[in-house]
Each structure stands twice: as C-alpha cells, then as structure tokens.
Amino acid sequence: MKTIALLGERFLDWLESVGRAGIFLAQSVCRLPVRFKESIRLLVAQLYSVGVLSLVIVVVSGAFIGMVLALQGYSILAKFGSEEAVGQLLALSLLRELAPVVTALLFAGRAGSSLTAEIGLMKATEQLSSYEMMGVDPLRRIIAPRFIAGVICLPLLSLIFSATGIIGGLVVSVSWLGVHDGAFWSLMQQSVYFDTDIMNGFIKVVCFSVVVTWIAVYQGYECVPTSEGIGKATTRTVVLGSLAILALDFVLTAAMFGDF
C-alpha cells in the first residue's frame, strides 16, 4: 500500500512541476521587454552567446560525423558496387536524423547547461529578486530573450551541421576514396526531397529547440540557489534534455516516416 501511495505522490509531484513549467513557458514567451530597442539588444546578446558561441562545436562535430559516415557507408556500399550512393546516404541520414538529433544533444550540453548555470547563479546572487524588487519582471528581462534565442539558434545550427557534414563526407568520399563527384551530387539531388526530408528534419529540430531551451531556462529559474543546487540543475538540464530529445525523436519519426 505504502509503495502505491508513494508512487501516487511522486506522480502528483511530477504533474505539478510539469504544470508549473507550462505556466512558466507561457508567461515567458508572451513577455519580451516592453521597449522594442531594448528587447532587440537583449535578444542579439543572447543569439551571440547561445548561437554563435556554439558554432565551433557544431561545425567540428558535423564535419567529423560526415567523414565517419562517408567511410562507413563507402565500405558497405562498395561491396555492392554502388559507392556513388554515398552522397545520397550522407544527405538523407544527416537531414532526417543525425543533424537534428546530434545538434540538439550538443546544444543541450553546450548552451543548455550554460543557460541553466547562468540563470541559477543569477538566482543565487539575488539578481532575479533584485529585478523583481525594481518592478521589472525577470521572466521578461532574463528568461524571454534566452528562450527565444534558443528557439531561433538550434534550427540554424542544425542546418549548418548538415552542411558541414555533407562537406566532410564529400572530402572523404570524393577526394580520398575516389568516388565520382558528379555521381555524388546528382544521386543526392535525385533522392532528397524538400518536404519529406528537409522539412521533416526541420520540424523535428524546431520541436527539439523548444523543449531543450524550455528545460534549460526552467531548471535555472527553479533551481535551489546554492552551489550544489546549481550543479544538480545543470546536470538535470543535460540529462532531461537529452532524454527528451531522443524520446521525442522516436515519436516524431514514427509520425513522419512510419506507415500507419
């Protein structure tokens, strides 16, 4: 009996926190700072720290993943004499799956954790209370620009990931393994469709961007304002964010590509 009661209690706690996070999201999305110029300034600063500073890890990972994919793909395709299809393999796997998922996972680790830590530290040093005391809503001033910047940046980073992945694959397969470059590009062009491949991947990454950034800013805002609390919140951002991405990816893939 006790176990069931405990499970019920846990479930109610969880439900409550999901509800709180939902209200938090709604409140922060509807509330950019009132002054237009100021909101743009805050948003640009966040676009830089969330997006531009994540570029290096995304570009480098994209290039390496493209290169590895080309090597692996080539070794299997060569057995069937169809090594030209490596371009098709690269583009489809990157656009549909790898770019959205891997970029979102990298983003959760690089930008998500830093958002949580930054907001958590602002809470610990009473900066958030300070805004409240000045009659300035911290959701408006701190959370909204960060959330919006995350939602804008992650899809763009994912596109950059795909592009560098394809270039990495091109270098390995064409320059190193000797695949014919005309065949590489034309097979890719033939098999990639805008709505089923590019758009589906894009929809996925937009969903991931909302979920990851939401988790990151919420964990920061709700963390226990101590060094231990911030540490735990940062870990939770990465763990919950990654699990949410992978689970959501399955659901979205099933809905987009599953035949039912």
């Binding site: 602002m122 040093t125 009473e126 900066q127 209370s129 300070s130 005391m133």
Partner: peptide, 10 residues
C-alpha cells in the same frame, strides 16, 4: 532594496 550580496547585475 539593498540585498545582502549587493545583487548587482553582473
């Protein structure tokens, strides 16, 4: 309000 830590915006 003057906070214990100062709470200046960093």
């Amino acid at each position: 309000m003057l906070f214990q830590s100062g709470a200046l915006f960093s």
